[in-house]
Each structure stands twice: as structure tokens, then as C-alpha cells.
Design a binder for these strands. Structure first.
Lengths: 209, 209
DNA sequence: GTCTATAGGGAGATAGAC
DNA sequence: GTCTATCTCCCTATAGAC
């Protein structure tokens, strides 16, 4: 059924609509009728593409995570081997931010429903989440081994801290505000140098408007 | 009706149970029957204390925010006037963490449903959220004015960044793990000094276990 | 592929007994 | 204060027409 172009388009339209509705109404609050209305068809038609409501949310959770993993991995691997760990963190932060904003409906839907879906769905998605966590942990550990970071920083906590802060951006980011690259640079600056630390020449930033 | 001790106790028991259920099932996924079961009474009885399901979630959102505001405000005001801004941030972080963990069910319920409740409820709660944001902004701005922080740090973003990171802790904190004070100190260390910055003598921390 | 109609279950809220 | 019984509404998922 996926060979048909019409079917592929409809499937994607339904998935996008579902992300939008799950984002606003949560797992239980989302109805097939609401998704159908957003996607401009009738509720019964959704079942041609997705067997159950759970299949829909599962596809949303997994695709968001896969996109994030690929984006950050590729951005970091694309760096020259001469790149500093400061560069690696900066690039990873930018890739993470850019992606979660780009697929904002999926990111927000994930944030808001991942704690409410049936266990089977959450456990399957957890594998991907752990993959992503270890991708970041490798980046941070690399920085310690190369002695670019202070050796007593708690890097497992630093990872939780950084990702928690980055993921929160989808809640307040406004497309009309500061450009995304500026935000990424400012966040990287605070992560790397802190509020007190001396200013690194590469991360000078403009005052907030 | 609140004069009766029995009523006060039941009311609190229902509220605690509701926070627990809202946390696990979201706004729409929470049923009055599930709350009643958790609170050891029947669904109809809840309506003696709360007119509607919306009254329940509204009480949870507001009480969580009020407790957080009071806790951080009191902790910071209790500092001697000689306290450094490093101390103020450290104390605020500790108060925030301690409170959101202490009322963990309410915090998690808030995190997970605040994007799904009817607009009227969210807007009323927003006033409190903004109060809390400006409390933190004052703490940060004070640090800049006293020249303890580097002057080009983007403090509005720093606030969003810090609170995003701190709030994420409720998702991964385990009571049996590292003591809360250690976590608060490590987070404060990363916020203030960054990953690269030189180590401040007051924030030496143990390696993660 | 997409529709309409509907079966079967469960929700919030109310009424009145105790 | 708390219970049971129930009204009314809306949900997921299916069946079969087109």
C-alpha cells in the first residue's frame, strides 16, 4: 500500500495532524475524530493506515527520536578531526536545537505524552532514547579525556542537565524572536563557560533584545 | 465545611491522589473513578469537595507553584546581606530542587498536564508562573549588577536554561541515588563555572558513582 | 482509499438514600 | 460526608458501501 503516492502523502498528513493533536490534548485526550478533522478526512479512514491509536503515537515517538539521533550524529561526525571539544559541543547543541524546533509538533507531543502511553510503547521507545543519551555521553566523556573540561565536572549529570535545558526550549522558542543560531551559541556559552567563567573569544554574544 | 477536621483530611487525601493519577494518565486520561480508588472512596464523594474535575487540576497546578515561590523566596531572603551571588544562586537552586522533589507528584502532574488543560485554567496559573520567573530573573540580574557574572551572559536565556534543567531532574531523580544536596551542588557548579571553567573552591564535588 | 453507520464500553456529573 | 444508581454524552474500532 505504500507504493501508491497518494497513500504515502495521506499517511504523512495523518501523522503530522496526530502530532499536532497529541501535543495539545495528550494521549487520552486525543480522539481519532480530532486527528481526522485536522487531516481533512473521516475518523474511519485513519484505520486504513494505522491499526490503532497506539500505532499512531508509537510512530510519532519513534520517528522524533530517530530524526534527532541522525541529526546530531551526522553533525558531529562531519567535523574535521582537528575540531576541539568546544566545537563538538557547540555543533551538537545546534543540531539538537535545530531538529527539535524543526519537528516541533513531534517534539512537544513526545514531551507531553511519553509519560502517559501504555508501557509496551514506552519501553520500545526507551531503547532509542538510551541510544541518544549515550551519543551525548560519548561527546562529553571525550572532552574530559582530552583535558579540555575540568576533570571533576560530573558529566553524567551534565548530560541530564544539558538535555533538560535544551529540550525546554521548544516550550518558549518563538520563530519571530532571536535566530536559532544565536540561541544555540548563547546556550553553548553558558554550558561551557558558566555564568561566572571568563569569556571565551569564540562565544561572544549579543545582549538579549 | 473546612472547619471539620475530617473534611480537611479527606480533601488533602483526594488532592494527593489526584496529583498521582494526573501524573500518570494526563488530563483527559484521569478519571474521577481512578482518583476515588486511589483516595479510598467513591467517585461521587469527590464532588462534595471539588465541583468539577477542572477545579481539581486547577488546585494542583496552583498549589505546586505557590509552594515553589514561597520556598525559593524564603531561602534567598534568609541569606545574610553579605552573601555572594554565587551563594544566592546555590541556595535558590537547592530550594527549587528540594521543593520540586518533595512535592514530586504535583510537580510531575503539572509538567505533564499544563499544556493540556482548558485555557481558562492555564491562564490563571500563568500568573503564578510569571511571578516565579521574575523572582529568578531578579536573582540573576543582581549578579550582573554586582559584576560577579560576566557581563555579556544572556541572563533571560540563562534563566530559561537553568529552570529547564532543574525541572528535568524530577524525571530522573531517584531517592536512593545521590543525596539531593550533592545534586544541587553539582548543578550549581555547572551553572556557575561551566564545563570548561576553572574550579571554584566552594564547589568541589565527588565523582559520580 | 475513503466514506457512513454503529456496536460496545466508559466518561463526568447529578440525585437522593443513609 | 459518603454511598449507589443513573443520565447523557462521546470514545475506539469495525463492517460494508462506493
Amino acid at each position: 500500500m505504500k507504493r501508491n503516492a497518494k497513500a504515502v502523502v495521506s499517511r504523512k498528513r495523518i501523522l503530522d495532524a496526530a502530532a499536532c493533536i497529541f501535543r495539545d490534548f495528550g494521549y487520552a485526550g486525543t480522539t481519532m475524530r480530532a486527528i481526522a478533522k485536522e487531516a481533512n478526512l473521516e475518523a474511519g479512514s485513519i484505520y486504513y493506515y494505522f491499526g490503532t491509536k497506539d500505532d499512531l503515537i508509537s510512530a510519532i515517538l519513534d520517528s522524533a527520536m530517530l530524526e534527532l539521533i541522525e541529526s546530531v550524529r551526522q553533525s558531529v561526525e562531519a567535523l574535521p578531526s582537528s575540531a576541539s571539544n568546544r566545537d563538538r559541543i557547540q555543533v551538537a547543541i545546534t543540531a539538537h536545537l535545530t531538529t527539535i524546533i524543526k519537528i516541533g509538533d513531534y517534539t512537544l507531543a513526545t514531551r507531553r505524552v511519553v509519560g502517559q502511553v501504555p508501557d509496551t510503547i514506552r519501553i520500545r521507545n526507551k531503547v532509542l532514547r538510551e541510544q541518544y543519551a549515550s551519543l551525548w555521553q560519548n561527546i562529553l566523556n571525550h572532552g574530559r579525556e582530552s583535558h579540555e573540561f575540568r576533570t571533576n565536572a560530573n558529566l553524567a549529570m551534565a548530560r541530564l542537565y544539558i538535555l533538560g535545558a535544551l529540550n525546554w526550549t521548544v516550550e518558549w522558542y518563538k520563530p519571530k524572536g532571536q535566530p536559532l543560531d544565536d540561541i544555540a551559541r548563547d546556550l553553548a556559552s553558558i554550558v561551557l563557560d558558566g555564568l561566572v567563567g571568563s569569556q571565551h573569544p569564540e562565544s561572544v554574544n549579543a545582549p538579549v533584545s
